[in-house]
């Protein structure tokens, strides 16, 4: 496999506090890779090191098999970054935003013009090319940022929470575009808070917390390993059920008012819980990535 990103024991400390504390992973060419974690887990810091904005404190970081510290200009020329915040230039129109950005990459003018039109078309923005950035809705602005990130025809696209704050329509539209890009073979690194998004788009992902990697794998494998195939949510569980779970050695989380029981595909136990312990308030459902995430990173608030 041709690795696009190789990270080994990467560390970043700010004033003695580790934001990224020895993470290692690699991303193969053409992969859609997810970087998941709660707020303050070190996602954005990792991304900033990847595109050469934040210098690493120690560890190895190679992109396109080159060192970011020495070949930063060459590497950055082949990366597209879609920031978490709106970094569009409010002094310029939508089209000018793309063209001026192409200038930073030294894309020839004619190529930039053609590419800008293609991207405006691809993101359904052709009719707003001359609009001022301030006039755009949140969903449109996000699409412009994404279009701008692709203006240099990158080999690696970095998306930092691309759908945060978007309405469901905009989010689904953006996902469709990202799936098209994925099908074209573009390598993508995504950070997100939305497990549905990661599950839908990512081939592989890592969950990080407190600057360390907790798990790595495909969404499917992680669900199997950490959430089980089936989950039963019981509201107001009785002592008999708790005794039964303990006796049968079935993993569960006791949230006080609610119990989450993690089951395998085996039908027998699920049926027993249904018939013996669930008079009314039980929900039977499949395990999701959100279950994995909450089990691994805990349920307490981060901010």
């Amino acid at each position: 496999m041709d690795p696009i990103i190789e990270i080994h024991n990467l560390i970043k400390t700010f004033n003695g506090v580790s934001a990224v504390d020895g993470i290692s992973f690699s991303v193969a060419k053409g992969a859609f890779f997810g970087l998941l974690g709660p707020n303050g887990a070190g996602k954005t810091t990792t991304i900033r090191m990847l595109y050469g904005f934040t210098p690493p404190s120690s560890g190895e970081l190679r992109v396109f098999r080159r060192e970011i510290t020495s070949d930063w200009r060459w590497i950055k020329a082949k990366i597209g970054v879609c920031h978490q915040e709106n970094t569009l230039d409010p002094d310029l129109t939508v089209r000018q935003n793309l063209l001026v950005y192409a200038g930073y990459f030294a894309v020839p003018k004619a190529v930039a013009r053609r590419r800008a039109e293609e991207l405006l078309d691809f993101f359904a923005l052709s009719h707003r090319g001359d609009a001022k950035v301030m006039e755009l809705s949140g969903g449109m602005a996000r699409r412009v940022i994404l279009a701008r990130a692709l203006i240099n025809d990158p080999d690696l696209l970095i998306l930092d929470e691309p759908t945060t704050g978007l309405d469901p329509q905009s989010r689904h539209q953006l996902w469709e575009r990202l799936e098209t890009l994925k099908a074209s073979g573009l390598t993508v690194l995504l950070t997100t808070h939305y497990m549905e998004e990661a599950e839908r788009l990512c081939d592989r992902l890592v969950i990080i917390d407190h600057g360390k990697i907790l798990v790595e794998g495909s969404p499917q494998a992680l669900k199997q390993r950490h959430a089980g195939d089936r989950i039963v949510e019981v509201a107001g569980p009785g002592a008999a059920l708790l005794d039964f779970l303990a006796a049968s050695q079935i993993p569960y989380d006791d949230l006080g008012e609610r119990l989450l029981i993690y089951l395998t595909a085996e039908q027998e136990i699920e049926e027993r819980i249904r018939s013996e312990f669930c008079m009314d308030r039980c929900t039977f459902r499949s395990g999701t990535l959100e279950d994995v995430f909450l089990r691994l990173t805990g349920r307490e608030l981060r901010e």
């Binding site: 904005f53 930063w72 920031h83 915040e85 970094t87």
Partner: peptide, 14 residues
């Protein structure tokens, strides 16, 4: 306020 520099610094500009 405009984060213009953040945008530029993701390109091959130092």
């Amino acid at each position: 306020y405009q984060k213009t520099f953040d945008g530029i610094l993701a390109t091959p500009i130092s």
